[in-house]
Design a binder for these strands. Structure first.
Lengths: 201, 201
DNA sequence: CATTATAGTGAACGAAAGGTCACTTGTCAA
DNA sequence: TTGACAAGTGACCTTTCGTTCACTATAATG
């Protein structure tokens, strides 16, 4: 039971921190959202900052488990169309999963204040995606699906625009459908340009 | 004199909001940084929120004056190398000008809380850049410097990665030099791929 | 010169914040 | 059955927040 409440507190913290930021969140509201009175929270965490640190621990661990290890890498596509399909599958999860959305928002809001948030933000928004697609593109080049080029540069050129549109979805959820279409278009455009035929008409 | 203090308050607000966010900023510190006592601030703005709104007004107006009007558009480059030079010139300003950096940070921190901040953030980070480079690329295609393609898609594919690295500079200023090099590399890569020869070796 | 508006001061206020503590309740092991 | 402990309560504390207000100094205006 103890553990359960501890985790519920973290879940509520993620929700509130992602909405109002760390400074804009108060323990009263947080505990009320759990049907608790605020002193109850202090039975599980010794301070607001302790909650924040535990939440970050959890986010860092989650990232390591799901995106840090090579075993969770998506398979290398066997055709250009499959790259688009794989991309859309990953993007669809990431823009619709509430927990992932809230994680991105928290990192966005706290990146300038907390060193660990800053580090994780860079992974989430930039280097992590680049790493994953560097491997994928290396594999696709080996299979002759992409023309030979620096796979890291291609991964960056591919993921950064997608990342920008994911941020747009977080900022303006009403534009999610449009953004998804734009991502798919961009993916096809990318393949047209970097495909084996070198983008020649 | 009145106007002077009013503007100094906005400047201080930009600095503090960009560091600690709106919720994390207090009027005591803000006024102290101006050599004032906090009640003095209320002679110029009736509330904290009024300061915030005035700051946003100023940011919106500034954006409109500097990036919104076609007359301030950079000239269309006359060679691929000139595109890289133009890009680096713009990026260098944007990652080193403290006021612009703080503006981006404020928009990043408040985009989920304030509708106008959200709107301006999308312009700053996405559509504004795309618009500018859509025109540039259209011009370059006319001059035969880029192969014919959808200029808007190219502008998006060009500016989004650069924008991602500008965000990295905001987040981790120590990596600014590296990021600038990466932007330059990316720009050259982009030209290699989209140049008139179509990226063929 | 008298007046009046303006910029700034310092004390005070109520609300809300994070945090503490003595106490109650329920659960489980000895 | 009893003792111990973990979970939760409600009252309370201190600090800090945004905001107000009576007051002063200054400089421009009639």
């Amino acid at each position: 039971m103890a553990n359960d409440t501890k985790e519920r507190i973290l879940a509520a913290a993620l929700e509130m921190f992602s909405k109002n930021g760390y400074a804009g969140t108060n323990i009263r509201e947080l505990s009320a959202s759990l049907g608790l009175v605020k002193s109850g929270v202090y039975k599980h965490y010794e301070s607001k900052e302790a909650i924040w640190n535990a939440l970050l621990d959890q986010m860092i661990a989650y990232y390591g488990e799901h995106f840090g290890s090579p075993e969770h890498l998506p398979p290398v596509p066997n055709s250009p169309e499959e790259l688009t399909r794989l991309t859309m599958q990953m993007v669809n999860i990431t823009v619709h999963d509430e927990k992932i959305i809230m994680t991105r928002k928290v990192l966005t809001l706290e990146q300038f204040r907390d060193a660990r948030a800053r580090e994780l933000a860079t992974k989430h928004f930039l280097t992590g995606l680049t790493d994953i697609f560097t491997r994928i593109f290396t594999g696709m080049m080996d299979k002759g699906l992409l023309r030979k080029d620096d796979p890291r540069m291609l991964a960056f050129a591919y993921t950064a625009p997608i990342s920008a549109l994911i941020h747009l979805c977080d900022r303006e959820p009403g534009k999610t459908e449009d953004a998804l279409k734009q991502i798919e278009e961009f993916s096809r455009h990318f393949i047209r340009v970097y495909g084996q035929d070198g983008g020649m008409k």
